[in-house]
Design a protein around this nucleic acid. Structure first.
Lengths: 156, 156
DNA sequence: AGTGATGCGTGCGCCGCGCACGCTTCTGAC
DNA sequence: GTCAGAAGCGTGCGCGGCGCACGCATCACT
């Protein structure tokens, strides 16, 4: 691995390492058990399926289901169905667009805002807690790198 | 955010940043389009559903479906079904355990090893290419941090 | 030898997804 | 003003994956 003739392998070693770690991380974070644990005590409306819609809505403000779809990564109809569940749980309210009576804007209710804030707080606390014993400044540097990686990395 | 009374929020800010980035990363990496692009030209047997089984098998060596299940993160029966598809594609071979005639070990065929190596190489190259303009040493440091994050982080 | 335990594959019901259809509403041209 | 085409939304439908549970084969232990 240290010979110059294998330089392509050395160059790609970082890629292999990141890919490996990301693969494990993906499988871990998609475990239903983790989501159950994090959504403990919340209302019945939010789960690992509906949360991406709720989160995207909180991030971008009131939008239609069609506009939310590419951000969530599924079809427009799926966003509609998930939003209906959130609406039934009282976390999301459908509001007719005054400028276009066809459009139905999805708006977070007060309870919806509270729920997403609570959930984000739990997740952040969970992450922060297990990073407590990192050397000072390491976590911040890692967070910056990770942000840049997601923003302009291979999955942009 | 800078007032002392909100110190818990400041403490959690790193957690929030990491959670946000991970959320985006998750949605990006689970997009089917990316998998289609990466598996371009491969046989029909490997896709975004069957690949985790193939990869886990390559990582840990010959194992039974039940042993692979917790690593993949789904039920034992799902691993069996995915393995059957990989077997039909000639990437995996079922081999009776000589010590236990109940057990069916899943073994990668030569073509299976070649496929997973090729796929890993593509992914690693894809990652490495977009990290080319990072400052020297930054990518390596990030990879180390990421590995530690997955190993002993909040999702261990 | 016999009984409980273990491992594997599969049938079944459930659920989420993408596609396509119908309905309503907007837009632009005549 | 009117009408045809486009745009937006919700929903029915078929497909596919998943978890559970059952049956069969085999092992372990008495």
């Amino acid at each position: 691995m240290r010979h110059a003739r294998y330089s392509w392998c050395v160059d790609n070693e970082v890629g292999h390492e990141i890919a490996e770690a990301l693969g494990v991380l993906l499988r871990r974070t998609t475990r239903a058990q983790l989501h159950r644990q994090l959504t403990e005590g919340m209302g019945e409306g939010v789960d690992e399926v509906t949360y991406p819609v709720l989160s995207a809505l909180a991030r971008t403000g009131p939008r239609s289901a069609a506009e939310l779809a590419p951000d969530v990564g599924i079809d427009r109809s799926g966003v509609t169905r998930r939003a209906s569940r959130l609406e039934a749980a009282g976390l999301v309210r459908r509001e007719a667009d005054p400028e276009d009576r066809r459009a139905q804007l999805l708006v977070l209710t007060e309870q919806g805002r509270h729920t997403v804030a609570e959930l984000r707080g739990r997740l952040a606390a969970h992450i922060t807690a297990s990073l407590a014993d990192w050397p000072p400044g390491e976590a911040e540097a890692f967070a910056r790198r990770l942000r840049r990686f997601t923003a302009e990395g291979p999955f942009a």
